[in-house]
Amino acid sequence: MISTIYFEEQVADHPRTLHLFEKFPLADRIPCTHYKEVFNPSGQNFRIQKKKPALILAGNSGKKVHPVPATYGIGGRRNFYFSHMLNCLYDCRYCFLQGMYPSAHYLLFVNYEDFYEEIEKVAMQTPTEPSWFFSGYDCDSLALESLSGFAVSALSFFQDHPMAQLELRTKSLNTQVLEKHSPLSNVVTAFSFTPQEISVQLEQNVPSVSSRIKAMRSLAEKGWKLGIRLDPVIDCHQFTQRYASLISQIFGEIPGDSVHSVSLGPFRLPHPFFKRMEKLYPSEPLFAGNLEKRGRSVSYEPEIENQRIETCRKLLLKEIPSEKLFLCQPLED
């Protein structure tokens, strides 16, 4: 699966690096001084790299925990994100990572403990008020678990830090790590969905909607709290029918009390990201369709966006109380 590993010389002897060298013994190993030498140069083509991404192992020496925009949250007042990994196993055409990063290589920061140290510091700023930490901002939290072992290590940290709340955001069926662990009340595993008809068009390599729902049900049976993320909401033919069927399929199988939160997010991209994505995939109907530039973002026309969000909101409120429903505006206008 991984045939090339770049590694920063400073993490050459890190136990996680050595473990990955062992796991991929045939991979070509290439040293670099700093991951930016490989990841950052301009003139790389994300689309081509996505066909055969390499793994980059690095140490993150900068700030690791960042505040999330005020418009984003699932009930807490203090919200942060961190990225132990950049880029994703899957290939969703709407994913902003394609517009944000010059490279599609998987960049893994192996110094997880430094992330936990910073998370602990941030959480301790308000010892009596929970702080939320979102992990699936720049990657899928579980899809590459067999490679990163991140979730398994995060669970043991969060188990000891109950005021720190963790959201694992995923489209993966790689839930064994959770299945094997006793449920933690401060961890929410949030699954993202678009209707199956959209998923097959736009979410390459992503497991089917029904298999994700099955994975969720199994976690619910084990006592884990779940999140449902309809984000981004994608406009399409038969919109109401498709989203209604998705929502009823999910709630037909998932017990309501295991649902911690549901969030809805419109499809919006910063204009420069959109331009890059459009250039990468000029024949992609999603980018060719009825979108417009609004402020610094590209999105559906306001009327369409409001209608589609409102439709989903109404459908969801038939299934959950309004306290569990959150509207997320991931990007500023």
Partner: peptide
């Protein structure tokens, strides 16, 4: 200036 030609080819050759 070190260059890393992206490993996009699928070949069983040496690197």
């Amino acid at each position: 200036s070190v260059y890393f030609p992206p490993p996009v080819l699928k070949l069983a050759t040496d690197y």
